[in-house]
């Protein structure tokens, strides 16, 4: 049985919009300096007619926060959020911050804010990498929701870095009816054995895979700069629904990239390969349920 189409509140047909990524270099734990970086980028993007500006993961705080996590956190409507909200004017913005909950849990979070229609959505990173060079679960609480949300640009999905390395996140968002996927990241550059940086090869694979198999454009925002010897390589990108490169940022440089995302292009791709239409979500659910049932049965043995 085909999965029913999710009803959407988004007007249709939708107009093309000007999406951009601010590939910034945050300072580590210096909120004042990072807010200034955001306000500058917002002002310049607004002047250039950008409709949706996406900053990378933890763009307001920097990445290797460790014990600074609690010191730089704020509630989702805290003073930094308000400052960005105010500066954004008619432009929608996605940015990364440390969210403190009323019960003193700290989340690696990304917010979508749009004054037009007063739309606000916060995604809390579900998959906190805690292996090798990463130690996120030591400092952050894990999010527990993967949800799409309606905006004037269509229905959006928002993932934070490691979330995208779990294919289930993409599967859930596809079933939830997304039109555009935004992935914000702090990807460290490593792997220098081949022609391209290993991190770049991996993320090109991830973004193009999602774009191709979920039938959606993907906006990938990565940061640049160094923290304690670790480089963040940049290479932000905007990928069309069929997996074609619409814009790619250079490595290592502070810059902004942009592309016009036209829903008609996505429509064309979905006619060409209606993968999302044919997805058998009920079958997936049944099989997952069977696997869950089997594993519980095995545990009881």
């Amino acid at each position: 049985m085909p999965f029913p189409e999710r009803p959407t509140t988004v007007p249709f047909p939708r107009a093309p919009f000007h999406a951009a990524v601010a590939q910034v270099e945050p300072t580590l734990g210096n909120l004042k300096a990072n807010l200034a970086i955001h306000l500058d980028a917002i002002e310049s993007a607004r002047n250039d007619g950008v409709d949706l500006l996406v900053f990378p993961e933890l763009s307001l705080t920097g990445y290797y926060l460790k014990d600074q996590v609690a010191e730089v956190a704020e509630p989702r409507n805290g003073p930094l959020a308000r400052a960005i909200h105010e500066a954004a004017g008619t432009m929608a913005v996605v940015y990364g911050f440390v969210e403190e909950s009323p019960t003193a849990r700290f989340y690696n979070a990304a917010a979508f804010r749009d004054n037009q229609g007063d739309v606000s959505f916060v995604h809390r990173k579900v998959y906190l990498p805690t292996y090798g060079m990463f130690d996120e679960a030591r400092y952050f609480a894990a999010g527990s929701r993967i949800r799409a949300f309606d905006t004037r640009f269509g229905r959006l999905g928002l993932l934070i870095c490691e979330d995208a390395w779990h294919l289930s996140c993409g599967v859930i968002l596809q079933a939830d009816g997304i039109d555009v996927l935004i992935i914000v990241a702090n990807s460290p550059g490593r792997g220098v054995h081949e022609e391209q940086l290993g991190s770049r090869r991996s993320w090109e694979l991830v973004t193009r895979t999602y774009a191709t198999f979920l039938n959606v454009p993907v906006i990938f925002a990565n940061r640049v700069g160094f923290e304690d010897g670790v480089n963040f390589w940049g290479g932000s990108a905007i990928v069309g629904a069929g997996g074609s490169w619409l814009a790619q940022a250079p490595e290592f440089d502070v810059t902004r990239i942009s592309a016009v995302l036209d829903p008609r292009d996505t429509r064309r791709e979905r006619i060409l390969a209606p993968l999302h239409r044919d997805e058998r979500v009920h079958l997936t659910l049944e099989e997952l349920d069977r696997i869950r049932h089997d594993s519980y049965r095995d545990e009881r043995r």
Binding site: K66, Q68, D228
Partner: peptide, 8 residues
């Protein structure tokens, strides 16, 4: 625990 690049 703080990064050496704390605040910079």
């Amino acid at each position: 625990r703080y990064a050496r690049d704390w605040g910079t």
